[in-house]
């Protein structure tokens, strides 16, 4: 009960303050005038195109930090197709791991399943596909080095169109 009264008093005080605070702002005629600098965007890397290859934009790529050499990790990104022709991510390669493959993780009733994506990952015409934890990923098998947040790794991504790109990917700790 004590807690409740305390809360109620605080609420009343807050309400009273909000009424009195209204008055000068409104009579001064500059209501809303201070809000100009308060634009709310996403994070610093949100929606940033890291590379363009053919008609595909590679957005916000990141690699999961991994502390164990010889272990595995994954790279995530959004592939955005700005062209009217569907394409596919068919291969990935690089020095960072003994093998690099395109995989999919699925959760089925609390059971995790992972499998290679057969025939490449489709990027629909004028559409996009998201590689993210618990879903599609570029799988790094047998890391040749520890992946520390703040560093970068380079992987070559090859598309069905024949286009390829050497992509620099920042290593991050997931949020």
């Amino acid at each position: 009960m004590n807690k409740f009264m305390h809360w109620m008093t605080a609420a009343l005080v807050a309400a009273a303050l909000s009424i009195s605070a209204c008055q000068p702002a409104m009579s001064g005629g500059h209501a809303g005038g201070d809000m100009g600098g308060m634009e709310m965007g996403g994070g610093p890397n949100e929606g940033k195109v890291a590379a363009t290859v053919g008609g595909i934009e590679i957005v916000d790529p990141w690699a999961r930090a991994a502390a164990m050499e010889g272990g595995n990790s994954a790279i995530y990104m959004v592939l955005k197709n700005t062209s009217g022709t569907a394409d596919k991510l068919v291969a990935a390669s690089g020095e960072v791991a003994a093998a690099i493959e395109i995989h999919e993780t699925k959760m089925d009733n609390g059971v995790m399943q992972m499998q290679p994506v057969e025939g490449g990952l489709e990027v629909p015409a004028n559409g996009s596909v998201e590689l993210k934890p618990g879903g599609y990923h570029v799988m790094l098998i047998g890391l040749t080095k520890v992946l520390k947040a703040g560093e970068t790794v380079t992987v070559k991504l090859t598309f069905e169109s024949g286009a390829s790109v050497d992509l620099t990917v920042p290593v991050m700790e997931p949020k």
């Binding site: 995790m112 499998q115 098998i141």
Partner: peptide
């Protein structure tokens, strides 16, 4: 906890495990 081994001959992984993730 359920866990099953799945052979993945096309992958350098050789095999992968399905497993409950609770």
């Amino acid at each position: 906890v359920s866990y099953t081994r799945r052979e993945t001959p096309g992958s350098a992984a050789g095999y992968l495990m399905n497993h409950s993730a609770f």
